[in-house]
């Protein structure tokens, strides 16, 4: 079992946060906060950024574990 694909997926999460933190953060926060403050009919009463980041992370984790399950054969 090659662990490279798992590492790629983990890397995706880390890169996402890195980019957000270093490049997009100021504008992204500003735009989203303005939007969510103005419109109170947002999903579940949550800002889009919360839905997006939590949702994407969960999906990435499930895909990674699914990939593991589909490719792992093991041997006894």
């Amino acid at each position: 079992m090659d662990i490279a694909p798992l590492l790629y997926l983990s890397g995706f999460v880390i890169i996402f946060y890195f980019l957000y933190f270093t490049v997009f953060r100021r504008n992204f926060d500003y735009v989203i906060c303005q939007h969510t403050t103005k419109y109170m009919d947002r999903m579940f009463g949550l800002p889009d950024i919360t839905i997006l980041t939590v949702g994407i992370t969960i999906v990435v984790v499930i895909v990674a574990l699914l990939y593991w399950g589909l490719t792992f054969k093991g041997h006894d």
Binding site: I58, L65, W68, F72, K73
Partner: peptide, 18 residues
Amino acid sequence: KDVKFFKWAPLAAFLIYG
């Protein structure tokens, strides 16, 4: 008992416990 149980254990544990 069997290493093959490790195949789906991570996903099952994550979904249930999560």
